[in-house]
Design a binder for these strands. Structure first.
Length: 260
DNA sequence: AGCGATGTTCGCCG
DNA sequence: TCGGCGAACATCGC
């Protein structure tokens, strides 16, 4: 599921369900999801509580005592909270059992997600070269982040070292709403286009959060509901096209997003 | 049966 | 150094 709006939705879910409960048991059904030794992971968290969480891009950092647990969701991550083990979802990989009899399931169908323990958040962000959070960045941070970027617009938006949080689907939507062709060289965009792009990044991501990342519910005026073969542009009613960029498939409207 | 999927990372090449 | 490209990771559904 997860780009920024989905991870923000997970954050709100975790904050409203899983804080301030002592972790009594951790069950790891597939250790490949852990970026560290399973014993170390458990040692760091057992008898601790999740106190608060912080999201940066697609990363969710959950604080316990003086460390953080990093939840990364890959392409198919999810979480689920329940008071009954029988509710265990398919592809649940790690289960946190709390002292109030509830469980938090970390789900990852394709095992592209990762859990880790982070002792120094600032150092981790620096090490990963994580760009400013796409939702929370200021205009100044945005301008600094994109300085001298010459790659195509879609690739730059999806580069987590430039701005963090935007993935394949939302980059398409943002470029669609801004009227920029996905292959436009970033450093050819005008000041005006950049301002409009900045506004639309915020607007689209906020809308996604408001809709809890449930793409099926998105307004038909968005590109997202039309991202399939035979899709029709909601603005001009012409055909949506699919192109390969950055090892992914992007969708755009050649009429509303002309090549410059 | 084969392809592709909301992500990240690495190696190769220009 | 940057950027484009392809592959790899692992699984499932269309």
């Amino acid at each position: 599921m997860p780009e920024l709006p989905e991870v923000e939705t997970f954050k709100q879910y975790l904050d409203s369900t899983s804080l301030h409960q002592v972790i009594k048991v951790i069950s790891v059904s597939d250790p490949r999801i852990l970026e560290l030794d399973e014993a170390e992971f458990k040692k760091a968290l057992l008898q601790e509580q999740f106190e608060s969480s912080e999201r940066i891009g697609k990363n969710l950092f959950v604080k316990t005592g003086k460390i953080y647990v990093l939840f990364h969701f890959g392409m198919t991550g999810d979480m689920f909270y329940s008071d009954d083990l029988k509710d265990e979802p398919s592809h649940s990989r790690v289960i946190f059992s709390f002292d109030n009899g509830h469980y938090l399931f970390y789900i990852s169908q394709r095992l592209f997600g990762k859990l880790n323990i982070i002792t120094d958040l600032k150092a981790y962000i620096k090490d990963k070269k994580l760009g400013p959070d796409a939702l929370n960045m200021t205009k100044e941070e945005f301008k600094t982040a994109i300085k001298r970027r010459s790659g195509n617009a879609k690739t730059v938006l999806m580069n987590q070292e430039v701005i963090s949080g935007i993935g394949n689907i939302y980059s398409d939507e943002i470029l669609f709403q801004t009227g920029i062709h996905p292959k436009t060289k970033f450093n050819t965009l005008s000041e005006e286009q950049l301002s409009y792009l900045f506004e639309n990044i915020k607007k689209v991501l906020k809308y996604g959060i408001q809709e809890k990342g449930i793409l099926e519910n998105y307004s038909k005026t968005y590109l997202i509901p039309h991202r399939d073969k035979g899709g029709i542009c909601p603005k001009c009613k012409r055909s949506i096209e699919r192109i390969a960029i950055n090892g992914r498939h992007g969708f755009f409207c050649p009429h509303c997003q002309p090549e410059s």
